[in-house]
């Protein structure tokens, strides 16, 4: 299997990471060597094996739906790169 530049561009779009030509070529090289290494798993037959999704064999506990933290709005908004009073600000999305 080989990951070409077109695939890299596709993954970068899905990942929301912009990639120029030079970076895409480097990534294609790296990912191909990593996937070559990963392909080793194909040696194993796994049709009848249950996938392991979590090693923690617990059932999720229920709790009452209560607000426990104090009002942190101001502090939380402060961490935002751009703010306007009570709102997070992003580039305009509606024309």
């Amino acid at each position: 299997m080989s990951i070409n530049l077109k695939t890299i561009k596709h993954i970068s779009k899905l990942s929301r990471i912009s990639v120029d030509e030079k970076k895409a070529e480097k990534l294609a090289g790296d990912l191909n060597s990593i996937f070559e290494f990963i392909e080793k798993l194909n040696e194993l037959k796994t049709e009848n094996i249950e996938p392991l999704t979590s090693v923690a064999e617990t059932t999720l506990k229920l709790r009452s739906d209560e607000v426990k933290s104090k009002n942190l709005r101001e502090q939380i908004i402060k961490n935002s790169p751009q703010e306007n009073e009570d709102y997070f600000v992003v580039p305009k999305v509606i024309e």
Binding site: L41, N42, L44, T46, I49, E50, P51, L52, T53
Partner: peptide, 9 residues
């Protein structure tokens, strides 16, 4: 999915 199965093994 394959990796999760091998993880089980």
């Amino acid at each position: 999915l394959k990796a999760q199965k091998v993880r089980k093994l």
